[in-house]
Simulated scan of single mutants.
Amino acid sequence: MTQKLKPASGLPAKVASQLEAAQAHCRALGSRLTAQRKEVFELLLLRGGAAKAYDLQDDMRERHGRVAPSTVYRALEFLMAQHLVHRVDALNTFIACNAEHQAHHPLLLVCSRCEAVTELQDDETSELVFARLRQADSGFLGADIEVKGVCGKCRAQETKEAARA
């Protein structure tokens, strides 16, 4: 799941575009995507959009020397508040949001084998789950919904391996 950091010589066009969109999104909300927050988001994107906080800290350390974990966590908290990043509790990982950056509650499909995460925007399903939680007088009303299972790619690989056996 974790990819090695790409050289800082130049950003891939997709990453540069995502950073520009994040900057515009934050500006529209009246918040500031500071250089440090932007760098943490950039590093996450350079890792394919998914990384653990300590991997991001290591990447920052490669660039700047000593970096406190709290620096990375504060930046990630800001990025989550802006709906640019989601925390995947099942993997203790952060992923870049692949949807419009509005208040939403995605369904995060987490593969228990390869640890791939697929983000689905399904407002109808999310609202149904939250309606049931409200009926149960639950306090779980603002969370993302994580569903663990095995992705199609891993299932296909298992089928191939079973056929060879």
Rank of each mutant, 00 (worst) to 15 (best):
Y73L: 13
S31L: 08
K14A: 10
A13E: 15
R132T: 13
R66L: 12
F130L: 10
Q3C: 12
G65A: 01
G10A: 14
K14E: 10
A136W: 08
T159W: 01
F130W: 13
A165T: 12
P12L: 00
F130A: 10
V150M: 08
A51T: 11
R37Y: 07
L84V: 05
A131K: 03
K38T: 15
V110A: 02
K52N: 10
K38P: 00
H25P: 01
M80W: 05
E62Y: 02
Q23P: 00
E146H: 00
V15G: 04
A24L: 05
H64D: 06
G48E: 08
A81L: 05
L11H: 06
A35N: 05
G152Q: 15
A165Y: 00
T159C: 00
T71R: 10
S31M: 09
Q82C: 07
A165N: 15
K38R: 15
A16P: 11
R63I: 09
Q135E: 15
L76G: 03
K148W: 01
A68F: 11
D58T: 14
Y54D: 12
L133R: 14
V67Q: 06
F130E: 06
R47C: 13
V129Q: 01
A21S: 09
L46M: 14
D59V: 06
G10S: 09
A116R: 14
G65Y: 08
A163G: 07
H104A: 03
N98G: 15
E158I: 04
A50T: 10
G48C: 10
C111F: 02
D89E: 13
E20M: 07
D122K: 07
S31R: 14
V67P: 06
L109W: 08
V88H: 03
L107T: 02
L29T: 07
Q157V: 14
L79A: 02
L44V: 04
L44S: 04
Y73S: 10
H83R: 06
Q157I: 08
C114F: 03
V117G: 01
A28R: 04
M1F: 09
L56Y: 04
D122A: 12
E146W: 04
P12N: 00
L19P: 01
Q23F: 12
H86S: 06
L44E: 04
A21L: 09
E39K: 13
L33M: 13
E20G: 03
A8Q: 13
A53S: 14
E39W: 05
V147G: 00
L91T: 09
S17E: 15
L91R: 03
S31Y: 12
L79F: 08
A68N: 13
A8I: 14
R66A: 11
C111E: 07
R155I: 09
L128R: 15
A28H: 11
K52M: 08
G49F: 03
F78S: 01
T93Y: 11
L79T: 07
C151M: 04
K160T: 12
I95S: 07
A136Q: 15
L79Q: 02
A13M: 11
E119G: 05
E62H: 10
G49S: 03
L109P: 00
R74V: 04
C154Y: 01
K6H: 11
